[in-house]
Simulated scan of single mutants.
Amino acid sequence: MREHTQQNVAIKGTKDGLTLVLNDQCSYEELLAELKDKLASTPVEMDRSLLVDVRLKTNYRYLNEEQEEELKELVRKEKNLVVTAIDSDVVSVQKALQWHREQQIERLVKVVRSGQVIETPGDLLLIGDVNPGGTVKAGGSIYVMGALRGTAIAGASGRKDAVICASVMQPMQLRISEVVSRPPDTHQEEQTMECAFVDEGADQIRIDRLQILAQAKSKLMKLERGM
């Protein structure tokens, strides 16, 4: 009975180039040797004058910077291949800490005065006012339990699903991700808590009562669940 030899490198052709799936259970030296042999023996049926994009999928193998460069250099030496991306299921300590910070809600009790800037990587819950000339900025959403009369920047990390809520919504400027809005000149006489969010259909910021946002989110969740 023939002994089964585990394949440490699998080469898959895609419309964008090649994907090299690397086994994360073997030693790094074994992986390197097999990768070299596979690249030397596998024909690449493409225009030799063009570079072929290669994506490395390392699964749960951790690679340090030196090993990443060694793999890239090995691929570069073979034919007309160039590594454009390395996909890994390993989360570095730095990325894990960043993700943790972005999920946190920072709670502050203060008045943000003119010239002051409050910034947080996650959500911001401010109990107090934001005066004209003051700025609050968050990677996630912003909730102001008071009057928002300054500038609020939510979704600074690129999140268009972030929202800006305030008990009194009279801002100088609102921004969610890259979408910027200036408020209307007139305000409701009866102050109710309002919320600003990106209307995806129009790609602009919409301000409405908090209940409207809750209804919209509820409908979206039902659609996502197929209800």
Rank of each mutant, 00 (worst) to 15 (best):
V117E: 12
D16A: 12
V111A: 03
P121E: 02
D16C: 04
V198R: 00
P171H: 06
E68Q: 15
Q94E: 12
D87L: 06
Q188P: 12
E224D: 10
Y143H: 12
Q103I: 05
E106H: 15
K77D: 12
L126Y: 00
V91R: 12
G128S: 03
G146H: 01
V112F: 00
L51P: 02
A166P: 02
F197R: 05
H187P: 14
L174T: 00
V109D: 09
Q104H: 13
T120Q: 06
L148N: 02
K57S: 09
V136G: 00
Y28C: 04
K57P: 04
K77P: 07
M193W: 10
D16G: 07
A96F: 13
I86N: 04
D203V: 13
I11D: 02
Q204G: 10
S88R: 02
I164A: 01
K217T: 06
E34F: 01
K219V: 14
S141G: 08
H187E: 14
S181N: 11
C26K: 00
G122P: 08
A154G: 05
L74G: 07
E70D: 11
E68D: 13
M169S: 04
L63Y: 03
C26T: 09
D24L: 09
E190G: 13
L31I: 02
L74R: 05
Q94W: 11
T135W: 04
K160A: 08
M227E: 15
L213F: 04
L51H: 05
C195Q: 01
A216Q: 09
I212E: 12
I142K: 01
A196N: 03
S88N: 04
H4E: 13
D161V: 07
A216V: 07
L220G: 07
H100Q: 13
S218L: 08
Q215H: 15
E78D: 07
A85Q: 13
E69G: 14
V90K: 10
G133W: 03
D87I: 08
E106D: 14
I11G: 02
P171Q: 01
G201A: 11
A138H: 00
S41D: 12
